[in-house]
Amino acid sequence: MVRPALRSRSLRKVFRKLPGGKTSTYYRRRKPSKAKCSNCEAILKGVPQERPYKMQRMSKSQKRPSRPYGGKLCSKCSKDDIKQEARK
């Protein structure tokens, strides 16, 4: 049996293969929800789904697309937005 503290469902299990061939279970905190477009709620690409302590370690370019409103709007929404502005 595992430790009673690890039996809670707030932890997720990670199965790892050990060099000897056995699998062991690691217990990790659950990941936060995926980043979504604020306009159409589509899942954003290029935005990692990690806990803040891991996001802190990443460089700025790893955390979001480098276009304006990157990490907030999806590429389709931002493209439509610019088109509407240009056609006025």
Partner: peptide
Amino acid sequence: CVKLAGRDSR
């Protein structure tokens, strides 16, 4: 023109 995609967009 106006650029739509990439870091130079807008």
